[in-house]
Design a protein around this nucleic acid. Structure first.
Lengths: 482, 482
DNA sequence: ATCAACACGTGACAC
DNA sequence: TGTGTCACGTGTTGA
């Protein structure tokens, strides 16, 4: 691996200084291992350009990128560049020194040559000078986020949680390896909105406070309004922000409740010191079971096993002593002081368990009763449901695209016949539409292109009138829903 | 719905008397609603006939059916007839009265006419007389098991648990709506083995005790040995039953341990009286934490919410008093007798909770520590993993088969161009193989058949020698794995 | 008043 | 010798 990329030492320095170290090494790695070859873009022109435009127009947002789910042959999945749009803020004049600008252009050209073949459109800049925003946007095109690596977009998609950070430091964290260019650009707000087929990333130079309506309306729009036409409702929904939408789809995971950012950053369930006490004291004067989960850090991401360890420190401080004497349970009856430590340990064990229960409540939908046992029962049946769902989907995927191949070697020539169910064939719906309209196809042809596409061409006589043609066109459009 | 099926009253009576009431109404419903039309068979000739033969040959099994996962356009899934095989026991002579036989044939013909189009091969019977086994087998062809309805095969697939019942009554239960014909046939053993793409159903007139090796070897065979060739290992593995196999795939759910049937029938986790006590007393003399889950009814199916209710009866009996005085915990210190009920209630609450914990342990794979808190943590991350897996798969499925369609209406004729990524196209792998071998295709052709298939034909010049042809053939075979 | 659900302190084990 | 986990009986609270 890495045979293609040969770098002079000075080029390396230039790239690294322009892109930042982390972005540089990511892109080198990506290009060397031909990662984008594996995760090819699938469908081009996703019909989301309009939507991206609408988001930016008349707003304080500066760019929007649609990261699209794509899978490799080896079964891995990643978020790859789907489409994007950006606009410079109105009054901004880019005044930079020449040398810097020259280097930027060179870096962009280098990147472009590395990833050639995937982006046929050569880089065309809006102005002579390359702004920081432009630089960020154009390099993002060459990015991708594998699902088996942790990244903000992939996590947002996985958990189907929106991310909204509106200060520079949080942005820097979220941008991860792209943070160098993001910091140069000066982004103050970054929003990640998971949608059906990927993640929407929207950024702004200004600090925009969280607007839950905006996120949900964007989400519902990108989940439903794909079929090219009718972007009427779009601007409307966007401007009034959240009036309509109301995602009745009831995703399994509850979205972040409040503008508190730490919901997404702090790995929930393991912060004992202050938070726990707050819950405790808050409850002890209030009755003990008014859904304490709401008060708590809500389960967070819990993305992996190692979380289970790191506790048992950070709680030996002041807040340990002023614990309320606990209204419930056994009355003190404290003769000795030897078991006092034991009592505290047991307290912590209980609290840890309850933490987990709250976290479990957060990830299991359709909790029947708030009861602990019921919760476990629900969780179990939910898990089995998910398992069977996955089992079914996997079996379907395997059985789907597996045509029969007959090979016949004859004397002078050979014949290969590939037979495939009409429903699984890309032109299946088209052919069915033909049959419905009783169209007679005069000629048909199949060809392949250089960039890995199969093109079917059907030729038939003109239709009776324009109306019929229009009807057929609509029918064809609706044949591929969404 | 139900326009197609018109029945004379006498026909109805005949069908019902031959098929049994439940099978009759199921088949009527299925045919009327054209259910098999929705779940079409996808791929024909799955290459499992050899396997099915091998299972029956030289054994006491009388029939084997492979139920295959299939999905409808509306997104539902079901197990449909994939393939099957049956054999009459050696010494059996079918001697029946004429009238019965005539009615059977008429029923079969009626069924065949209802479901025409799906099974092109007309019914050809092995003998003049239709045996009960034959009757059962042939009507099963018209069956199917939707996943949103509860049935033994679909449950077996969902939970990926094998089912093995070896007495007539249990068989009757498992066969559900097919039980009438099954009872007539006199099946004493029914085995359901979940495999990758469906469920294997195997039955016998004899009562065959559970053989775990048989199930696992069948499973691994049907999961791996699809690629037509090399059925050598097959007979071997099958005969010695379980020596090799050893499903290292570590399915998330443990298979039923013992021949006890109630594992699957009794909804686990709610039987307190005797079982609980057994566990308790067994442990109390033994140290308290030697994986009590193994002693317990293992979570069972837990298929739905309503399980959570039915308890709190059935425990007011003798076994309540002789409960061991409980080695652990607070020493009696029993002055009053008023709280004795409270104590018992609390005991039950705890036990219920623990039941759920055991059940949870059973459905969550990769338990890091046997600790309760860790278990919850594992369960949570497992759930989020499953959720994201499902999210990714759904996004992939949507983005997959969605080609671009261009419609151009011109003066005299019209053109439709369908563009589709090579990787998603059925002939993609074939074309890639051509390119690898630098084959020049002389002619190609696409046609569709009556029964809903698309057939691509490629014609090219003869290859250099037979070896090259063989190599290409192998390459093509291996292009579609499994 | 009963009843279900919890949290608490405590003794018992195990490593 | 602890350190962590569990089960038990009990006190308490809301329905």
């Amino acid at each position: 691996m890495g045979d293609k990329i040969r770098l002079e030492e000075e080029d390396k320095g230039m790239l690294e200084s322009v892109l930042g170290h982390e972005a540089f090494s990511f892109l080198i790695w990506s290009a060397s291992n031909k990662v984008p070859d594996e995760f090819r873009p699938k469908t081009k022109d996703l019909g989301v350009q309009d939507g991206l435009h609408k988001i930016l127009e008349g707003s304080d947002w500066n760019y929007a990128i649609f990261w699209q789910v794509s899978n490799s042959k080896s079964g891995k999945s990643a978020l790859v560049w789907g489409d994007g749009h950006y606009k410079e803020p109105k009054g901004s004049e880019v005044h930079e020194n020449r040398g810097e600008n020259v280097r930027k252009r060179m870096v962009l050209q280098k990147l472009h040559s590395w990833f050639k073949g995937h982006e046929e459109g050569n880089l065309q800049l809006k102005t002579d000078l390359v702004s920081d925003l432009e630089m960020f946007y154009l390099t993002s095109r060459f990015y991708l986020f594998p699902f088996d690596k942790s990244s903000s977009p992939s996590q947002s998609f996985n958990t189907s949680r929106s991310v909204w950070v509106s200060d520079a430091e949080s942005c820097e964290e979220q941008y991860q390896s792209r943070s160098f260019l993001a910091k140069l650009s000066g982004f103050q707000t970054l929003v990640l909105v998971p949608v059906k087929k990927g993640v929407l990333e929207i950024g702004s130079f200004k600090s925009i406070p969280e607007d839950h309506g905006f996120a949900t309306s964007v989400k519902t729009l990108f989940n439903e309004c794909h079929p090219k036409g009718l972007p009427k409702i779009f601007g409307q929904e966007l401007s009034l922000g959240g009036g309509s939408g109301g995602g009745a789809k009831a995703g399994p995971i509850s979205i972040n409740f409040s503008p508190k950012v730490e919901d997404e950053l702090d790995f929930g369930g393991e912060s004992y010191g202050i938070q726990s006490n707050r819950v405790y004291s808050g409850n002890s004067s209030n009755g003990h079971r008014i859904d304490p989960g709401m008060n708590h850090v809500i389960g967070g991401v819990l993305n992996s096993q190692p979380i289970i360890s790191a506790l048992d420190q950070s709680n030996q401080d002041s807040n340990l002593m002023d614990r309320k004497p606990r209204k419930r349970g056994r009355k003190p009856a404290n003769g000795r002081e030897e078991p006092l430590n034991h009592v505290e340990a047991e307290r912590q064990r209980r609290e840890k368990l309850n933490q987990r229960f709250y976290a479990l409540r957060a990830v299991v939908p359709n909790i029947s009763k708030m009861d602990k046992a019921s919760l476990l029962g629900d969780a179990i049946s939910y898990i089995t449901d998910l398992q069977s769902k996955i089992r079914i989907m996997e079996a379907e995927k395997e059985v789907n695209i597996r045509p029969e191949v007959d090979f016949m070697a004859r004397k002078d020539d050979s014949v290969i016949r590939v037979s495939c169910p009409l429903d699984d064939h890309p032109v299946g719906r088209v052919i069915k539409t033909f049959r419905e309209h009783e169209l007679v196809v005069n000629d048909t042809n199949v060809s392949t292109t250089e960039n890995g596409k199969v093109i079917h061409t059907f030729l038939f006589q003109a239709l009776g009138d324009a109306a019929a043609a229009e009807q057929l066109k609509e029918k064809l459009d609706s044949a591929f829903p969404e």
